[in-house]
Every structure is written in C-alpha cells, then in structure tokens.
Design a protein around this nucleic acid. Structure first.
Lengths: 188, 188
DNA sequence: TCGATTATTTAACAAATGTAAAAGGAATCC
DNA sequence: GGATTCCTTTTACATTTGTTAAATAATCGA
C-alpha cells in the first residue's frame, strides 16, 4: 500500500487523515495472466492501481479484439468513459502478466471528495495527466504513419515491446498484426 | 456572460461569491474569421468559452496543417496538453467563423481553486467530460475506417459539415482532402 | 460584377495497409 | 520430451489511402 501513497505523493500531499480514509476503501487484488479483471458491459466503479504486472483495456470491433491501452507498474487503470458517465462500458480489462493491483472503490472515493478536498485535487491531477496522455496518443494516431508510431513506441516504451505479445500491440497501434510484422521486418 | 454561467450550471452549482470571483477573471474577446487566437509556441494559460462562432486547434506536421479539434457555440476550448503541463504548445487556435469568446485567465482560475472548492469541482467535471470525449475520439481514429468516421460525423455533427471547410475536416478525420472527396463521392 | 483567389473534385499512378491462408517458431501442458 | 496450442512471420493478392497535377466550383474583394 505504501507504493500507492508514494505514487499519490507525486501529485498531491495528503494528510494522515486523508490517507487513512483512502486506505479504508482500498483492497488488494492478485490476478494471473489472461484473467479478466472487469468484463464488458459492466459499469466501471473501481479505479485500479497497478502495483506489479501489466493490464490492458480492450474491446471488440466486428469480433476483432482491439487493445485500447496498457497499464504497467505504478500507474492507474480505469475505463474513464464509463467511470465518468456511469454508463456500462463496451470495454474489458484483462491481465497480461501476473499482476498485483490495488482496487479503489470509486463510489466511495467520490464521496470522500466532499470530506477531503485534497483527495478531490489528487484525483483531478491524476486524471488531468491521463487526459494529456490521451490527447498526445490521439495526435499520434491521427497523423503519424504506422511505422512512426511503432518506432516511437520502441523508443519510449521498449519494455512494452518485450513484455506484451505483438498481437496486442498491433491493434494498440491501430494496425493489423500482419502489417506490424511487415514494419518490423523493414526496420531490421 | 450569462451564457457562460448557464453552461457552468450544467456541471456544478456555484454560489454568488464563486460566480463573482470567476467573473473578475473573465474578459470578452471578439475575433473574425481566419484570425489567430493563440499562436504556436505559446504556453496555454487561458481557457476559452465559445459563445458564438467556431474555433479550431491545429498544428503542423511536415508543413501540413492538421486540425486536432473544433469548438462550437457553448463549449470550452483549451490546449490541455499545454495548460496542464505549463509547457509551450506546438498547437495554435484559429477562428473559423466570426466568433465571440469569453477568456478565462487560467493562472488566476487555478488560484481560485484554493478559495472556492466548487470552482475546482466545476472545472474538474468540465475536463472529465473533455477527457471522455477524447477517449471516444481516439477509439474512432484507432479502429474505424475513414468512411465510418465520416459517416459518424455526418450523423452526429451535420452542422460541422455545413459550417467548416472540408480541408479542415479531412485532417480532423485523419485523412487527406483527396481521400475525403472520394469518400463523399461514393456516399452520394 | 469581374477577376483573382481559394476550395473542392477528379484522374492517374504509387505506396501502404488489409485479408486470407500457410508456414515456421515458441511456449505450454500433460 | 513430444504433442498441442498459441504466436509471429511470410506470401499473394485486393483494397484503401496518399501524391501530384489538373479541372471545376465557389467565394471574396476591388
């Protein structure tokens, strides 16, 4: 749990009271490779912190599995389009490596916002950062070539390439696996 | 200015005090078609509310003009990747139709967060909504075909098609203008 | 209103990516 | 350790999209 609070401290200092309040709505979850953390059709009411391992958000488009995002150690994972709208999500969360997560009950968390403004501020900043990352990712999808996107990934997140099967990475980059293989072949 | 507070009220009720505090850091801006609201290389420290007209955020990739997003009446426009990181933006804001904007000084706004938690909450919710919209847009760019993206736009925002030149819409959809013309021809 | 400029479409060809199927490798499970 | 399954690459061909240039169409300013 200390990892979580070290992560929080990067964004916003918290009083002991506030920390204690958060601790009470958290639980530790262990999951193994390929297990499903949250299913499709379920409304997201939990924010997860990945302490160890990797998870991904994915959905189906015409029966094809599309990876929307990956989350590694020391990051937050949540299906925000469901969390912030309270609508069921068309997306699921799946575990890619044996993973240890801390589950934060979002319903209770949002109630804590009224009691501890520092907690509201903390999560505001966490999601502002997520927003910025999404805007940058959108830019990359909107007008970089597939090869540029792959090269950027190789440069910015080599760990991802090592630990995540290529079949998931292809759809994350917005291309097919065959196309990704071709790009990898030309870059050798 | 009342339009702005009606817009805010959809997200979060504000006390008269809080409203007054916001009013003091706002100013009205009138701009004509093709004028530049904020230049490339400038750090975004202003959040704009579009009262009337249309603006767009754009940038250059290899000398080609790319539209990242449009903002219509009754919406917020800001280059969040700069606003939330205080880094200079590679993007600019340009006016597409004669426009009336309300400029909110973000530096002062963020100070108000300490005094009026309701204002922090208001903007938290506004940007949460923007975050969700960006996630949905990313999904559309990641795995819908260009034709699907155009059809969706035609259905969801016909006004955009009527009021915005196609050359801007093409890059917004992540394709060239020639490609957009072809798609339009096949859909006739 | 005319001429000039800007926006949009069309054409022809090149390049990138998708699809389907097969082959080769790697990992996994009794 | 061998069979099985899953992952990745390769091939061949179809389709989509990009590029460049030219032709139309629409808009704007004097």
């Amino acid at each position: 749990m200390e990892t979580l609070f070290r992560f929080f401290a990067q964004f916003q200092p918290l009083s002991t009271d506030a920390q204690e309040a958060i601790r009470e709505i958290c639980s530790v979850v262990h999951l193994k490779k390929n297990e499903e953390l949250q299913p499709i059709g379920h409304t997201c009411r939990t924010i997860y912190f990945v302490k160890k391992g990797i998870a991904r958000i994915y959905y189906y488009k015409d029966d094809i599995d599309i990876t929307e995002s990956f989350s590694f150690e020391n990051s937050i994972i949540a299906r925000v389009e469901s969390l912030f709208t309270t609508k069921p999500s068309r997306k699921a969360i799946q575990i890619i490596e044996d993973t240890e997560l801390i589950a934060i009950n979002a319903t209770q968390l949002f109630k804590l916002y009224d009691i501890h403004p520092s907690i509201e501020r903390l999560f505001r900043k966490i999601f502002e950062k997520g927003y910025v990352e999404t805007v940058n990712r959108m830019e990359s999808l909107q007008f970089h070539t597939a090869e540029e996107r792959y090269s950027a990934l190789l440069h910015e997140a080599p760990d991802l390439l090592r630990r995540v099967p290529l079949k998931y990475i292809a759809s994350y980059l917005g291309i097919t696996q065959v196309s990704l293989s071709r790009i990898r072949a030309t870059l050798k």
